[in-house]
Design a protein around this nucleic acid. Structure first.
Lengths: 173, 173
DNA sequence: TCCTTGACTATCCACAGTGGACAGTGTACC
DNA sequence: GGTACACTGTCCACTGTGGATAGTCAAGGA
């Protein structure tokens, strides 16, 4: 949130939440509940300060010098380990009891979703290059594309890995 | 948890938590706190039932027919969307204010960690093939390998994407 | 045989993250 | 002037995280 505030300037909680979706939504999540709770904490710590209340009692928060220092310190400390949480892998891992036809349906839907995402990342990167052309931003999207490429490759390998799912010729087809 | 119980049979909470680490730890997390809380819920729902209390007041839980039905229903419903949460991408995204030398250190550490993980997945898959040879299990590990390959490829592209980080010749080197 | 040590098992707590409901308040448009 | 809708903030119940704690058993040494 400090990083976001430092880039987009004074913003109210709702707008901050929307900005988070756009700017880091591809690799991080930030719900509104969380934004408001955290803004309160950050204000108590002196990392952000609020301007006067505006329409609908909204307050625009901006990052303070103290907050900027905290942000830099946090960046310097380096990232935590990531946790990949892939529900589809649970379905696969415990999927021996699932009807092959249903498993194929699930994988097809999964494939479609990720194909779309992959194309989206491609367009997004092109857009970014032709507008702000911020290398840091582009680097994150590039990761998204490579991730989706890995997903696509995995899907191509699956029929070979799971012959019982893909070779079955059931009456239901 | 129902999936785990159906595969490993009657287990107490602690052992279930350890099994989760081994069996699905590469793509899901399950803390002990969570296991005990959830076991309680599952017992209330009639999805698991506990045997008599053993040593250290431990109880071995096993899945009931009702639980097995719930598991199958859950599998059939299909997986939720995944959320990738990559702290390293936050560091990159807001990393313009970070000293290039420090950024390179961070990326080097990240690279080492993932190189190790990639090798680990390779060995794990070989192990699996030579022991249980369960295709569903192997399919999940294969995803891990492809994910790590994507990470590696991204790291190779980064110097080109972030010239300001990698081309700087600072006195500190 | 008794004691010590360490592992095992369960519980608890504070906090972060999630997703949705809700209510008050502007604004734009009819 | 009125109405519908979007905006903003608040709240709640639940899930997930990480670490602390305490009781209990087992193994091995004195």
């Amino acid at each position: 949130m400090l990083g976001l505030l430092s880039q987009i300037g004074p913003t109210n909680g709702n707008a901050l939440s929307r900005s988070a979706d756009v700017l880091i939504g591809d690799f991080w999540t930030l719900t509104r509940s969380q934004v408001y709770r955290e803004l309160q904490t950050l204000e108590d710590l002196g990392y952000v300060k609020a301007g006067p209340a505006g329409a609908r009692s909204s307050r625009d928060f901006s990052i303070t010098d103290k907050g900027a220092a905290a942000l830099k310190e946090w960046l310097t400390a380096g990232p935590a380990d990531e946790v990949i949480r892939m529900p589809i892998l649970l379905t696969i891992r415990f999927g021996a009891g699932l009807a092959p036809a249903r498993m194929r349906e699930i994988l097809t839907a999964f494939s479609r979703r990720h194909q779309a995402k992959r194309e989206f990342y491609g367009e997004l990167e092109a857009d970014m290059r032709s507008t702000r052309n911020d290398p840091y931003e582009i680097a994150t999207v590039r990761f998204g594309r490579l991730f989706e490429a890995a997903v696509a490759e995995w899907l191509l390998e699956l029929p070979e890995l799971l012959p019982t799912v893909f070779n079955e010729r059931s009456a239901e087809e």
